[in-house]
Amino acid sequence: MHEMSICEGILLTLEAQAKEQNYKTVKKVWLDIGAFSGVEPRALTFGWEVVTRNSLAENSELIINHIPGQAWCLSCSSSVTIQNRYDNCPKCDSGMLQMTGGEELKIKELEVD
């Protein structure tokens, strides 16, 4: 449900950048969204259309780069990809994982006019 707030956050950034970077419309927005960022990409895309109406990003496209959950296994000393925060190491089944990635919530790049 907070995807709407996230969309508003993105739009605020785009509006602030518009002055600095001298553009008046945004056509595409590239995002990095981590698996554990608490954001549901489909809800984000839906919210984006609503939030950007009558804004400089109206009809713009959100391109979401999904970042998988990454962890470092303290037991077998390897970097592994995990699906859930509570997963065991897929290599050695140890529960001693330290999250190293998957919480990203970033605007990476814009295509603007």
């Binding site: 970077q21 990476k108 603007v112």
Partner: peptide, 17 residues
Amino acid sequence: LSQSRMIEIETNILSKN
């Protein structure tokens, strides 16, 4: 045609919060 350009901004979405 307008000239689209790319801008790298690398900003946290929740940076305002």
